[in-house]
């Protein structure tokens, strides 16, 4: 390294010199941008996020072909597409963020960021932004494509749909942070994220709409973490649930989100175990 001119190293800035301080926006932008580059460069994660949910739609459609959807008022392709959005939430957001949080912790990136000006919350949100943003766009594209080419009805209650999607993004990002607290390595993230993945796929209406399940099973499944968000998304797009059902789903999603955020504050680990 070359000798530096004194001009460059001189006089540490004091508070009074009026240097522009960073804002939450600056920090989220910087963190999100870096994380976006990392997401794009991680081929496996990108592939999982972009294409596996699409493959899952086909799988859901196949399995639904053998189930009677008579009572639900949804066609097979409609149930498959809303299930696909659930897959995006569970795989592209929850799965990839569990790995991302774990990787950043193991690489001591979280520790470094905490020596700078970003707050703990900003670090977690900034890291989640690209995956969550990508999932939002992906869902929008899936909805548009389904309406345009697959003869699926246009969203019946767009506000409920967007609301369900947004709370789903927040909830699954928070759940990813909680899961990563119990995950030592990126490799083991595949295993630690499996329980919630399985529970959601089976019990939160991703494969089979809850409406098609026996009542007693369905009311049990309504208590699962992702069910509320899924119900909002399905009702927002395809109609069906209204009034108290929607309120119940929104409440359940909200409670799970609050619990998850609390769990993050309580259990999230910023440094690897020693």
């Amino acid at each position: 390294m070359s000798t530096v001119s004194t001009g460059e190293t001189e006089s540490p800035r004091s508070r009074e010199t009026g240097v522009r301080t960073t804002t939450t926006g600056d920090r989220l932008k910087a963190l999100g941008r870096a994380e976006f580059s990392l997401l794009v460069r991680n081929r496996t994660a990108l592939f999982t996020a972009l294409f596996v949910p699409l493959g899952m739609i086909v799988a859901i459609r196949e399995s639904l072909g053998r189930i009677d959807l008579g009572d639900t008022g949804f066609s097979v392709i409609e149930a498959s597409m809303t299930g696909g959005i659930g897959m995006v939430l569970v795989m592209a957001v929850y799965g990839s963020l569990t790995s991302a949080y774990t990787a950043r912790r193991e690489e001591l990136v979280l520790k470094r960021l905490r020596t700078m000006e970003a707050s703990d919350r900003e670090i977690l949100v900034g890291t989640a932004l690209p995956a969550a943003g990508l999932a939002f766009v992906q869902s929008a594209v899936m909805i548009a494509a389904a309406v345009a080419f697959l003869d699926v009805r246009a969203p019946r209650q767009p506000v409920v749909l967007v609301g369900g999607l947004l709370i789903g993004l927040v909830l699954l990002s928070a759940l990813a942070a909680v899961t990563s607290a119990f995950t030592r390595t990126v490799e083991s993230a595949q295993i630690t994220s499996m329980p919630l993945f399985m529970i959601s796929v089976v019990g939160s209406g991703l494969f089979v709409p809850l409406e098609a399940l026996p009542d007693r099973v369905a009311s049990l499944c309504e208590l699962l973490p992702v069910t509320g968000a899924m119900t909002l998304i399905r009702a927002g797009w395809l109609g069906g649930a209204e009034g108290n059902d929607l309120l119940g789903a929104a409440l359940s999603a909200l409670v799970w989100t609050i619990l998850s955020v609390f769990a993050v504050q309580r259990w999230f680990r910023w440094e690897p175990r020693r």
Binding site: V19, R20, A30
Partner: peptide
Amino acid sequence: ETVRMCAGCTSG
């Protein structure tokens, strides 16, 4: 990119 990421979290 690393420097830019950190610069976004550093005043001045």
